[in-house]
């Protein structure tokens, strides 16, 4: 009998409890579930791209701070009065919002977004641990009204690139290739106030102060609430399109979020350089940037950069994820879904 067999038998008489013997633990969990303070609604994936995560192998996007202590803004909702806007770049983006030709999608049509995403992927296989950078080029047909279960997605996973200083693990190449067109999601439980279809976004306030209240709906106060409001802005910019009046209000409201600052220069997932506005998310140990064209102030994409190595589990300065929105257009229909 070797040492592992002996170890397996050590204290093996401790029984697996029945559910009835776990009643006290379960009651404590149930009490937390009934807590009236609203839960957070951070969406799947940093930038809420449906199907952005790489599937297969034991690969998963680097989950920054998986076991980090929660700093969620789970406090009773409060009324948020918009402070004075202090980020000039966003003010200019608001002013410039009307200069590009406006899309006017009608009910029943689709908004078609082409974008690129870049995520570091960690893969663990029998042979060991590896890290690499995975890029994807994607096109999504989002219904003008309705959630992502009605959307169609087509994507190309591009050849992997090395994580700075590391070798590409062989399994990384298995992910490469084309998929779709397929249904973008089988269910979508996005909260009503976080929907980002055109129909919903066109009904949002056009007054910056009211838009600010909307961004903080169901949130408490403090840095974690600000980080979530900042995420909500990202949700309205990413694979989403809103009428110019709402877009202006959004940028002016965003300019008032406490802690937001301008970053000189930032590169999006397509390699385009722009200027960015950024907010630190202390809970995740990273800053989240929205990148704009330096001349036209058109929205380019997003980027997350590590600012706290211990929290994020990755060295400071590492780009944890990035996106680039390449184009938006209107289409009468989405491609047929391959089953």
């Amino acid at each position: 009998m070797n040492e592992m067999t002996r170890l397996e038998r050590f204290r093996a008489e401790v029984p697996r409890p029945e559910m009835t013997e776990l009643r006290r633990e379960e009651q404590r969990l149930r009490a937390a579930m009934l807590d009236p303070s609203p839960g957070r609604t951070r969406r799947t994936g940093r930038f809420r791209l449906a199907a952005a995560a790489t599937a297969g192998l034991a690969a998963a996007a680097v989950a920054a701070g998986l076991l980090a202590v929660d700093t969620g803004p789970e406090r009773p909702a409060v009324v948020h009065t918009m402070p004075v806007a202090h980020v000039e770049l966003l003010q200019r983006a608001a002013d410039a919002a009307g200069r590009t030709p406006e899309l006017h999608p009608r009910p029943g049509q689709f908004l078609v977004y082409r974008s690129m995403t870049m995520n570091p992927v960690e893969s663990n296989t029998e042979k060991g641990h590896g890290r690499y950078l995975s890029s994807e080029r994607r096109t999504i047909w989002m219904p003008v009204e309705g959630d992502s279960t009605h959307a169609v997605l087509e994507s190309d996973v591009l050849p992997p690139k090395p994580y700075p200083g590391e070798k590409i693990p062989p399994e990384a190449y298995r992910e490469v290739g084309h998929s779709g067109p397929s249904k973008a999601a089988d269910f979508d439980r996005t909260a009503e106030w976080l929907r980002n279809d055109y129909a919903h976004l066109s009904r949002l306030p056009t007054d910056p102060a009211k838009m600010y209240e909307h961004l903080y709906a169901h949130l408490g106060t403090g840095p974690a609430a600000d980080a979530q409001a900042w995420q909500n802005i990202g949700g309205m910019l990413t694979e989403a399109y809103m009428p110019v009046a709402q877009r202006r209000a959004l940028f002016r409201a965003a300019a008032a979020v406490p802690g937001v600052r301008t970053v000189g220069r930032a590169v999006d997932a397509a390699g385009r350089t722009g200027v960015a506005v950024s907010l630190d998310d202390p809970g995740l140990g990273q800053r989240d940037e929205y990148i704009f064209d330096a001349e036209t102030y058109a929205y380019l994409g997003q980027r997350s950069v590590v600012i706290d190595a211990a929290r994020a589990g990755t060295p400071v300065g590492t780009v944890v994820a990035s996106t680039a929105q390449l184009s938006v257009r209107v289409a009468d229909r989405a491609p047929a879904v391959r089953r």
Binding site: R28, L29, A32, G39, A53, A55, A60, L67, G72, E74
Partner: peptide, 19 residues
Amino acid sequence: VAETFLTAFRQREKYDASR
């Protein structure tokens, strides 16, 4: 055990749904 599930519940937003 009670704390484990309370902590998990509070951190459910951070769970990497690809796992």
